Simulated assay, not measured.
Amino acid sequence: MTSMEKVNAFRDARNWRQFHNEKDLALSITLEASELLEIFQWKTAEEGRQDIDAIKDELADVLIYAYMMADNLDLDIDEIIERKLIKNNEKYPVEKSKDNKATYDDL
């Protein structure tokens, strides 16, 4: 069973799809991402990493909601990631961006 199938099975067993419209899923992604960020608040990156179990939980929540949104919109996650990587490769060519943290408009 794929991750998407497991997420859908969990959701469908509880009849929650009715509550998972795209607006609410986008909100939930943002809220869970904020909870992930909160783990690092007032800490160095190294200090935040020490709470790896909380990081795993919050990152999983972000991904689960993202998977549900992709499913609602009938999007293939591998396909949209590949598409975005192609776009990013064009915006950030290796010869200009390697070892450079500048955004694409500054390259």
Rank of each mutant, 00 (worst) to 15 (best):
D53S: 08
I29T: 01
W16G: 05
F19H: 14
E79Q: 15
T103N: 12
V62E: 03
D51N: 13
K23L: 13
D76Q: 09
D71Y: 13
E35P: 03
I64Q: 03
E38T: 07
V62P: 01
A26Y: 02
S34P: 00
I29L: 04
V7A: 09
Y65K: 09
K98R: 15
A66C: 11
T30A: 14
L27R: 05
N21E: 12
E90H: 04
V94A: 12
A45M: 10
S34D: 13
Y92H: 11
N8G: 00
R49G: 09
D71E: 13
D12F: 05
D99Y: 12
T103H: 07
A9H: 11
I77V: 14
D61F: 03
K6R: 13
T103L: 14
L107W: 15
Y104D: 09
R17H: 11
K6I: 06
D53E: 13
L63G: 06
A45L: 10
V94K: 15
R49A: 11
R14Q: 15
A45C: 07
D57T: 09
L107V: 01
L85I: 07
I29N: 01
G48A: 05
Q41S: 08
N89H: 12
E32T: 01
V7I: 15
I80Q: 03
S97F: 13
Y67E: 10
L73T: 02
D51R: 11
I39L: 02
G48R: 02
A54D: 15
K96D: 09
I55Q: 08
E58H: 02
L36S: 04
L25Y: 00
N72S: 04
E47C: 00
L31G: 05
Y104K: 03
Y92D: 08
D12Y: 09
R14G: 00
Y92S: 06
M69G: 07
K23N: 13
E58G: 02
A70F: 04
I77H: 01
E46Y: 07
W42T: 07
E46M: 04
K96V: 06
I77L: 15
V7N: 03
A9K: 12
T44F: 06
Y65P: 00
E58W: 03
D53G: 01
L85D: 11
I80P: 02
L63M: 14
L107M: 09
D99L: 12
D51L: 08
A9Q: 14
L31F: 10
E79I: 02
I80N: 03
E58T: 03
V7Y: 03
Q18E: 14
D53V: 08
I29F: 02
I86S: 08
I81C: 04
Q18S: 14
F40G: 00
Q50W: 05
D51A: 09
K6V: 05
I64F: 14
K98E: 14
D105F: 15
K23S: 12
L63V: 10
V62Y: 02
K98C: 06
T44A: 01
R49V: 02
L63Y: 14
A9F: 12
L75I: 09
P93A: 03
L75H: 02
V62K: 01
I64L: 06
N100S: 13
N100H: 11
N88E: 07
F19Q: 10
A102H: 04
